[in-house]
Amino acid sequence: MPSYLVQVSYTSEAVAALVHNPQDRTGIIRKSIKNLGGKLIGSWLSFGDYDVVLIADMPDNVSAAALAMAAAAGGSLKSIKTTPLLSTEEAKAAATKASESGYTPVQQ
């Protein structure tokens, strides 16, 4: 099953609500992912541009997009970024295919 890195930034209102009423959102996230046929691998609080980072295995891109759309539609996120992750074997296969693609760069 494909893996995805999901990075989330909360709105300032959502952060204020979490400060006022601290809660562990992992169960809600896990249930949503499971309902879409996936599995939550891990979830972490992070510093910097994103407040939460998670890794999820999802059946396909459509399911991963559905997760992002559902989360974004809730109104408590400032941004959400979903990045497909390739295994080492997939990366090697991609490099092999790239070498066979016949692509040539722009000549200067």
Rank of each mutant, 00 (worst) to 15 (best):
D24F: 07
E89K: 09
S3T: 13
R30S: 12
A93G: 01
L45H: 13
E100Y: 13
L86A: 12
S79L: 09
V106G: 08
T104A: 09
V19C: 04
T88A: 10
L45K: 08
M1Y: 04
D60L: 02
F47K: 06
T26Q: 14
V19L: 11
L86S: 12
A73W: 11
Q107H: 14
T104E: 09
V8R: 12
G75V: 08
P22A: 00
L54F: 12
D51Q: 01
K31P: 04
Y50E: 06
D57L: 03
D57Q: 11
A91F: 06
P59D: 03
S79M: 11
A68E: 06
S87Y: 04
K31M: 12
P2C: 07
K34E: 15
G37H: 01
I33V: 15
S3K: 14
E100C: 08
S87H: 05
L40R: 05
A91P: 08
A71S: 12
S9C: 01
A66K: 14
N35M: 11
S9V: 05
M1P: 13
H20F: 02
G42R: 06
Y103D: 10
M58K: 06
M1L: 15
K97Y: 08
G27V: 09
I28H: 14
I80V: 15
L54C: 00
K31S: 15
T82D: 04
